[in-house]
């Protein structure tokens, strides 16, 4: 499956990945509108963690044995047995936040509306994930993981 790999040695803490993640999950898909009008509703599904000079972007790792899927009581989270992607169906999500609690990398966040979980969907609809496409230093790359 495709995995987003963070190269922390080249992550420069600009957080443009967060900006573009948010935009790509907005209704308008427009930078200024997304921030001005939708910021209250949506959150980026990627977070840059930083300690001193070192930083890197964290998003869903699409674990082989995902704790979130295990914990999800409605089946909103599931793992595609073929591609290995962990997907989230907001229609079934009831906002119990068990997934947020169990995620080992803290990659699942609450939607600003407070009703459903939000996590990296690898931008499956558009192809290349927005964070990868917009990382100015190629610190985020998408790699095909054949395991």
């Amino acid at each position: 499956m495709k995995r987003i790999v963070a190269k922390e040695e080249y992550c420069m803490n600009c957080r443009l990945c967060e900006v573009h993640c948010l935009v790509s999950h907005s209704r308008s898909k427009d930078l200024i509108k997304a921030f001005r009008q939708e910021r209250g509703e949506i959150v980026p599904r990627i977070t840059v963690e930083r300690l001193g000079a070192v930083s890197f972007a964290v998003q869903c790792r699409h674990c082989d044995e995902p704790a979130c899927v295990e914990a999800c009581m409605t089946g909103a989270l599931s793992r595609d047995p073929v591609t290995g992607e962990v997907t989230h169906d907001p229609q079934r999500c009831v906002g119990c936040w068990m997934c947020v609690m169990v995620c080992p990398t803290g990659a699942i966040r609450r939607d600003k509306s407070g009703h459903v979980a939000a996590k990296c969907d690898l931008c499956l609809e558009t192809g290349t994930p927005a964070c990868v496409a917009n990382c100015p230093n190629e610190a985020l790359v998408i790699e095909e993981d054949n395991d």
Partner: peptide, 18 residues
């Protein structure tokens, strides 16, 4: 631009692949 510096916060801005 991560070129003429030794500050680790700045040097990582230049990815040698690029």
């Amino acid at each position: 631009w991560g070129i003429a510096t030794q500050d680790p916060y700045l040097t990582r801005r230049l990815n040698p692949d690029i």
